[in-house]
Simulated scan of single mutants.
Amino acid sequence: MIDSLGTYARGKELSEQVNPGMEDALRARYDALVPGLAETVVDVAYGKFYARGGVDEKTRLLATIAALTAMGSQTRPQLKVNIGSARAVGASREEICEIIFQMTLYGGFPAMINAMNAAIEVFDAEEADA
């Protein structure tokens, strides 16, 4: 079992807080091809990285948004998930957009525009759900 140090349990709690249903969605999509992938994402990404101390969840998610933005358009699905997660822990639209805009210096204008469009899609979905 992966949870020998409690990282899976911490990861599960955090992932359900910021991205409810993510593990089930990953399991449904990928476990037939790679059994245990969903549990590994929860354990490693959320339990061992996102649940670490040192910085708060909002800061960690804004850093993730910055990195995904600079990496370019191939990260669009992950960027949208992390923008939604950042909103769930209190990041404002303005904070997210400023972080994305700042990445123009590192990823270029196309990467920034693609990320900004992803953010707009997340914000529009929030409004539609309201």
Rank of each mutant, 00 (worst) to 15 (best):
D31V: 13
L5Y: 05
V81M: 13
G72E: 04
F101H: 06
T69I: 07
A86K: 01
M1S: 15
K80T: 08
M116K: 04
E57A: 12
A111I: 07
R76A: 15
D129M: 15
K80L: 08
V44H: 12
T75S: 13
T104C: 04
A125E: 15
V122D: 07
K48S: 13
T75D: 02
L79M: 07
R93F: 00
M22E: 03
A63G: 11
A86I: 12
L26K: 04
S73C: 10
L33D: 08
I96L: 06
A115Q: 04
N114K: 13
G90W: 02
A66L: 00
A66I: 00
E13N: 14
T64C: 14
G6M: 04
F109E: 03
C97Y: 03
A118N: 06
I65T: 00
A88T: 12
E13W: 06
D24I: 06
V42Y: 06
G53P: 08
I96V: 13
R87C: 10
I113G: 02
D129I: 15
P110R: 07
R29V: 13
M71Y: 05
E16R: 03
G36L: 06
A70Q: 06
T104V: 05
P110G: 12
Y50R: 06
P35A: 11
A128G: 03
I83A: 03
R93H: 05
A67S: 11
D24K: 11
G47H: 07
V122P: 10
L61V: 08
Q102W: 00
A130D: 14
I113V: 14
P20A: 08
V42M: 11
L105D: 04
P77D: 05
T75I: 04
D3A: 01
N114H: 14
T69L: 03
T75W: 01
K58L: 02
P20C: 12
I83V: 13
E127P: 01
M116P: 09
A86G: 09
Y50P: 01
T7F: 10
Y106R: 07
A119D: 01
A130R: 15
I100Y: 00
G11T: 06
A28H: 00
T75H: 04
R60I: 07
A32L: 09
G53W: 05
G72M: 11
A88L: 10
G90K: 03
G6H: 00
V55Y: 03
Y46M: 06
T59M: 12
A86H: 10
V41E: 09
D124T: 15
L79C: 11
G72W: 02
